[in-house]
Design a binder for these strands. Structure first.
Lengths: 251, 251
DNA sequence: CGGCAAGTTGAGCCAGGTCAACTCCGGTGG
DNA sequence: CCACCGGAGTTGACCTGGCTCAACTTGCCG
């Protein structure tokens, strides 16, 4: 019986993507996990329901996009991070629960895992543990990179950086120069700490410089990746005052 | 012999702070770790030496402050995160190595751990594992909170938020209202994504509103914590246009 | 007690926020 | 099928918070 994966998993993208946790679990472990797992969907704008949060669950994102949003007293909204297929959200005891809320950016599919089973697997299966930890580290690194974008970059540079981030995160594309933008303009603005109007203008500028081409609002074609990288790293307008000599390149 | 901690550890702050990893290890494990460990110091401005980075080590911060800095092509500098006593930096295989550099914010003491031994201990000691795990999660949460600060907050709100962050991170203080600022104004500016001049002005404003008092540049006394929290959450100037009704409070 | 870096103060300016009008597009009902 | 509607996105005009640059003060170290 445990020679085959559970039926649920056999139709799940996370099981077939070997960057994901589930692809590296034993069939037995999967059966244990899935025994108590429940798959559910959220539509754009939906938060993870309160009653589910109460149970302090662990959620695996099996498809779609979900964001971690914070709201200030006067209504300013920020998207601190977003998660896509393969990301595992541990909603126990985190401050995230108190301060931010998880809200779907697009139709998202989540697989709810029983914390006890998850913990046991992480404890007992070193391969799973390493994979999950490296995922946590990737989240830290992403967040740090994002902080750099937000802290000192100009609007256009932030957008360039974001497009590159997307192109790295969604690299299962057939044509690598076509990049999926996983959220709407409004959300993008909140993620990048700017106004929707500014986002719109920056897309226009990058198009004008023939660095990218925008067909639909959620699809970008990169026309000149080196230029995009330069812009993202702050050498943007071709007339920068190279006041300091920097050797690092990055990205 | 293994009934006592290693000599090195017996004089190390990390060993005596029970929020830290070392305080939860067996003496035997500590001996294993320390056998190959080397303690070294960096002065303000020093990076972690390249030859050490090559060895992809694991570093425990036993005292002082160290930052993760990124530099853009034109010299703009950002501090994406900073680490203090108890933080463990795993410098293996991270992109951090390529893109950012770890630079001391003040005299910092680091304890270099052998990756193999560290891994073994994490594998074998569930208590250590859980502690390290929760530390990773704290880093993710900190980074998300920081992203929120950077994205949509105004200068004064960022500073208020930072002071509260410090008061949370360094809560071993005898007087909780006295907060240590772990870096200089210039670094603070780079961490908060603003200019040193603006940082200075914001300190003045908060003093003027009698929310804090600044004696030395690295010490702040919180005079009105609720007000500080309100400011940090964007209800700052007393005349905010409460356009949206928000129920969440936080912080 | 001089010298240099850090920090502060002031004046002016500009990138991006704000506000308002308009276009575009997908969904819905007649 | 088309007319209508509402929300998302865009465009334009204007305004301001914080950046910039420069001068000044403070504090630290020899």
């Amino acid at each position: 019986m445990t020679d085959n994966p559970p039926v649920k998993c056999a139709t799940c993208a996370m099981y077939f993507d070997n960057k994901n946790l589930c692809a590296h679990l034993e069939n037995e472990e999967l059966h244990d996990l899935v025994g108590q797992a429940r798959v559910f969907q959220l539509n754009r704008g939906d938060p993870i329901p309160d009653d589910l949060l109460q149970q302090k669950p662990i959620l695996a994102v099996t498809g779609g996009e979900i964001s971690l949003q914070y709201i200030l007293h006067d209504g300013r909204r920020t998207i601190a991070a977003f998660f896509s297929r393969g990301d595992v959200l541990d909603l126990r005891d985190t401050r995230s629960q108190r301060l931010g809320s998880f809200i779907a950016l697009a139709k998202v599919e989540l697989c709810r895992l029983a914390p006890e089973v998850f913990d046991r697997i992480i404890d007992e299966n070193p391969k799973a543990r390493k994979l999950y930890w490296s995922q946590l580290k990737v989240q830290v690194e992403r967040a740090h990179d994002h902080a750099v974008d937000l802290a000192k970059k100009k609007a256009q540079e932030k957008l360039a950086s974001f497009i590159l981030e997307c192109s790295n995160r969604y690299l299962d594309r057939v044509v690598p120069e076509i990049v999926q933008i996983p959220m709407r303009r409004r959300d993008l603005a909140e993620y990048l700490g700017m106004q929707p109007e500014t986002v719109s203008r920056c897309f226009k500028e990058l198009e004008g410089r023939e660095v990218i081409a925008v067909s639909e609002t959620k699809v970008v074609r990169i026309l000149n990746r080196p230029a995009l990288r330069l812009i993202a790293n702050g050498a943007g307008d071709g007339q920068e005052n190279q006041r300091f000599t920097i050797f690092r390149l990055g990205a």
